[in-house]
């Protein structure tokens, strides 16, 4: 039982990271109609920025904050230089062009930071375990991730639903031409949205970094998962992305935690440990396939589309 709670929290934490990635992806897709395979590169870039900046400033929080700003700027620069010409093109062009950017960033990072990965060390107070329920201890940093990402999700909600710029973003998602015709600087809006998506992805990378490792290609697997999330949730829908992200996060984690034991009941011990990740991944992709077949618009299609 305790194990189950712990695994649910882990799933929640993965889900929140997925949400940060998927929110940017779904905004960019919903508003600019762009498939961005380089989104995972921004996730990676964010983690590298933070690793460097935490080292320079000597403070975890300052490093993360500066890292988010740096990724925001990097995202906007990328948009102006390379993404802008892709708007209005075929989806195949998006896939190819951003695939080119993805391999470019992998080697660029290798050139700048070298092939060996980096680590971000946590401040000591985040290394302890916190008692979340009587008898249930949970690593403080994982809790910080959940809380911080929830806060960001809330901020994003307020930004999109309650501010003027959010209104423009929503208007842009439902009718681009009209917003442009009404005199809104749509180019600037796109650049800002792309930067916002980049910052969210970068922040996700930074949050993941202390748990794993800052390395080249770290954004590739999770990018595909984030795509699965936005397909399940409905493209362009932030609410859908949130629910789908948490669902996928929990399925993945629970699958990895419990499927191996289940398999071991029937097969050998080693078969269990290798079948776990395979089965839980299959579960997620099967869920996506089912959603696409029965509700091609996703579970929570963006309204007004």
């Amino acid at each position: 039982m305790l194990y189950l709670i712990e695994q649910c929290l882990n799933g929640m934490q993965l889900g929140m990271l997925l949400f940060l990635l998927a929110a940017g992806l779904t905004l960019i897709f919903g508003i600019m109609d762009l498939i961005n395979l380089a989104h995972g590169s921004l996730y990676m870039l964010g983690a590298y920025f933070a690793a460097t900046l935490v080292g320079v400033t000597g403070s975890f929080v300052a490093g993360i904050a500066l890292g988010v700003v740096a990724t925001f700027i990097a995202g906007m620069v990328l948009e102006v230089i390379a993404i802008r010409p892709l708007y209005g093109r075929d989806h195949l062009d998006h896939v190819l062009g951003t695939f080119g950017l993805l391999i470019f960033f992998n080697d660029l990072v290798r050139l700048i930071w070298g092939p060996a990965g980096l680590t971000i060390s946590l401040p000591s107070q985040m290394l302890t375990a916190v008692q979340v329920l009587p008898g249930v201890y949970y690593p403080a940093f994982r809790l910080v991730i959940i809380i911080a990402t929830l806060a960001v999700a809330l901020l994003l909600y307020v930004l999109v639903m309650r501010t003027r710029i959010g209104m423009l973003i929503r208007a842009g998602a439902s009718d681009r031409e009209m917003v442009g015709a009404l005199g809104v600087n749509i180019k600037l809006l796109y650049t800002l949205v792309f930067g916002l998506g980049a910052a969210l992805a970068g922040f996700a990378g930074m949050m993941q970094a202390p748990l794993a490792f800052v390395q080249i290609g770290m954004g590739e697997n999770i990018l595909i998962l984030a795509f699965v999330v936005i397909i399940i949730g409905g493209i362009g829908s932030i609410r859908g992305a949130f629910i789908a992200a948490v669902t996928v996060g929990i399925i993945d984690t629970i699958g990895r935690a419990f499927v191996p034991d289940l398999v071991r009941h029937f097969l050998s011990y080693s078969a269990g440990s290798s079948a776990g990740p395979a089965l839980s991944s299959m579960l997620i992709y099967t869920l996506m396939a089912l959603v696409l077949i029965f509700r091609p618009e996703g579970l929570f299609p963006a309204s007004g589309k």
Partner: peptide, 8 residues
């Protein structure tokens, strides 16, 4: 670094 932008 060369192939990627070339693709774009």
């Amino acid at each position: 670094i060369i192939v990627g932008p070339l693709l774009l």
